[in-house]
Write a protein that binds this DNA or RNA. Structure first.
Lengths: 159, 159
DNA sequence: ATAACTGCAAAACATTTGCATACAG
DNA sequence: CTGTATGCAAATGTTTTGCAGTTAT
């Protein structure tokens, strides 16, 4: 999740990418869309659409839930946001520009999410592409289980 | 998905496992629960809860949607059924006893799902367990992209 | 007998949609 | 000006829940 050293520079970059994308697609550059983008990049870690909506509301921005969902979708299309489906719950989002690709480790007891990378996944993906004559655009890998942290709610269970 | 050679033997086995699980947990062995189990193991490939419900109804079994959901959860607890969340859609289930573990390849154009195995995932999982001091119980890996089949709806797109 | 299970319908939940209004181009 | 984007609230679709009645043990 490590945010870059120069958040205002990052913000300028992503704003420009978004602007270019909207120009190219003939979409309107509304203040609401930029407000969503900024709130996304002000985020630490994962968040869901409603959290983002509430945060925007608290700051006085007048964006509707519908616009939040709509804009998150646009940001996903230009790869500024990634969406993850952990279990059956609501989708989680995260800023994705300038972050290296990673997968997720989820504790079933405390719900905490960690990130990890493993280059071997690239190899797996490549082999599958060849064997199945398939073009892989993205993947989703989550490992579920039990963390062993002191403060994890279920730590004491024998299992 | 390849069903074993002796479906009636398989069915006897899974029925016994389910029975033992219910006995151990002091759950009632109702005809509805067995009906769900049998319909699950009569399935080819993935299905969703409502599909299963409708199939049961068509066969004259009188089970409610609630019981289908409840029973699928029980079957999951004793590892007779696996549940997958492909994208944001409704959960998909599949019989899991006697099938080797596998992951999924999903075409974004036609929705078709394939299965694949790669032993390297086991290594990835093991490394993560060590590095993060975490006990992994299960994982979920989906590769998304475009299949190159003749009859795939979006086959002609340049992308 | 009695507590757990069932069916049904209503509730819950995240997300999408329809429509009248606002505003970017 | 024009059509696209917006806010709101209602609709959607899947899963869960509450409750009165049923049934396995």
């Amino acid at each position: 999740m490590a945010q870059g050293k120069y958040p205002e520079a990052l913000l300028r970059e992503v704003r420009e990418i978004f602007r270019a994308y909207m120009r190219r697609k003939n979409l309107r550059q509304t203040p609401e869309r930029f407000a969503v983008l900024e709130e996304v990049y002000a985020s630490e870690g994962h968040f869901d659409a409603d959290e983002l909506f509430l945060r925007l509301r608290q700051k006085g921005a007048s964006v509707s839930r519908a616009t939040v969902y709509n804009t998150l979708e646009l940001l996903r299309e230009c790869n500024l946001v990634a969406r993850h489906q952990f279990g059956r719950n609501q989708a989680k989002y995260e800023p994705s520009y300038g972050y290296r690709q990673h997968d997720h480790l989820i504790c079933l007891d405390c719900g905490q999410v960690w990130e990890f990378c493993d280059p071997r996944l690239q190899d797996v993906q490549q082999l599958v592409e060849e064997v199945y004559n398939f073009e892989v655009t993205h993947h989703s890998l989550e490992l579920y289980g039990h963390c062993r942290r002191e403060n994890c709610p279920n730590r004491s269970t024998a299992l």
